[in-house]
Design a protein around this nucleic acid. Structure first.
Lengths: 242, 242
DNA sequence: CGTCAGATTGATATTCATCAAGATCGGTGG
DNA sequence: CCACCGATCTTGATGAATATCAATCTGACG
């Protein structure tokens, strides 16, 4: 099977079992693969796309720009995430999708995805599910920005990213790569760059996490989760009939 | 047609045209209607439901509770919103849904909704769409909490609620009812009660909005939208093929 | 060696939370 | 009718959290 579809297949089958016919339908999808350099826009706000993209490698983020040029990142997406599935239904993008690092994405035409929804209801529900999990992650993010302290917010983010990356084989042994500058982190946390820097320093000072360049090491996940009030329910990591 | 289904039908047909067969399928759904007093939980976090609810009257909100008892509201839902459609796929709720005011909701069994997805792909896409619009609203909320000032955030919220309510006929003539206490507003904005009170005072001082008890009057929508950096794209108010 | 992006730190101003105290208003019982 | 009560709104005072400004430091790289 072509690599992007293999990835999608694995990603969907993590939440529920796919049968042979569904796998066939998935693997018959066409797509166009594209590479993006760090900082590039995969999709720009207010555009109308006729295809949706899946992250194959690298980190991407959804970004909302304010009139004054300030930026808020509203979601981080890792390889295997069907970032832009929202565009299939929304038609006009309300935000842009940016490459936080060099990355590769696969663009699947909307007409093929629509055809899929006509033929494979269960597969459709799994795609739908992936957008509702995105929404659950966004809710948690609202709670983090609104009510958690910067330190616990950052701890929460680390817990979430570790688990999400572990599931797709990008993390393990309590360590993972996080290719984000502190400016990027600031735009995720909704803080200033300087305060973000101090928050990272405070997190290191807890001794629960080491973080140097792009290497994050979690020394005690349970205590970090406790500090951050992290409860993985919202990630829906269990496989069950959907 | 039974009232809840009538409402759902109207709500979905706002974003795309429904054909006769689809309307028939919708109107054959069964549901159980329930009333909730202000402050009650329609759905509690961590529960597993076998039905999803649609708001028929009153205001509801999604709420995330932190360990220390503090609360963040992550979405407000008005009559016509299929609040809890997320539960159809998520299985375990990551948040609770609360009645912000006395309200009535219709609970539609999951097995009937699943059957609908098996028979009516286009209808399924419209239900899916409604969850992705929720997600778009949540993204805007992340940007508001993270990067807007309390005053512009509140102004943005007023613009959004006015338009959403206008579409379902609950607002008009630049006025609407908003039955929320300032404590509730604080939990939406992610601010303290006192600061929220001062923000409401500042908003009144702009002269763009009058707000007394539950009556909100917008005196100059365009200038309010400009103040708040409000752009309605994310609400997807246009009807087009999906 | 110079340059540049990113990280770090100190100093200061602004924003926001918290604490404490009224004020307002609708409802309720005498 | 009036006194009282609880919920909500409002305000002032204070301290903590956060933004902003301005350097400096570090490491990668041509």
């Amino acid at each position: 099977m072509k690599p992007a579809l293999e990835l999608l297949c694995k990603s969907l089958s993590r939440r529920d079992r796919l049968d042979k016919r569904e796998i066939d339908i998935l693997s018959s999808l066409n797509y166009k693969q594209m590479a993006f350099a760090k900082g590039a826009e995969l999709i720009s706000a207010h555009s109308r796309a006729n295809s949706s993209c899946l992250v194959m490698s690298g980190l991407t983020a959804r970004a909302l720009m304010l009139e004054d040029g300030r930026r808020q990142l509203t979601a981080l997406h890792i390889p295997g995430d069907f970032v832009d599935l929202h565009a299939l239904l929304l038609k006009v993008m309300d935000h842009s999708v940016m490459a936080m690092d060099d990355c590769v994405a696969a663009f699947i035409p909307h007409n093929e995805l629509i055809a899929l929804t006509e033929q494979a209801p269960h597969l459709t529900r799994l795609l739908w599910l992936s957008t509702t999990i995105d929404a659950a992650i966004q809710r948690e993010m609202i709670a983090s920005i609104g009510r958690r302290t910067p330190l616990t917010h950052l701890g929460h983010l680390i817990c979430e990213l570790y688990l999400r990356m572990e599931v797709v084989g990008l993390a393990g042994g309590w360590r993972f790569q996080l290719a984000l500058t502190q400016t990027d982190i600031a735009d995720i946390l909704g803080l200033s760059l300087v305060h973000t820097n101090r928050t990272v320093r405070d997190l290191r000072a807890t001794g629960l996490v080491s973080w140097k360049n792009s290497d994050v090491v979690i020394h005690d996940f349970d205590r970090l989760a406790e500090l951050a009030g992290f409860d993985a329910t919202y990630l829906n990591l269990l496989s069950e009939p959907r």
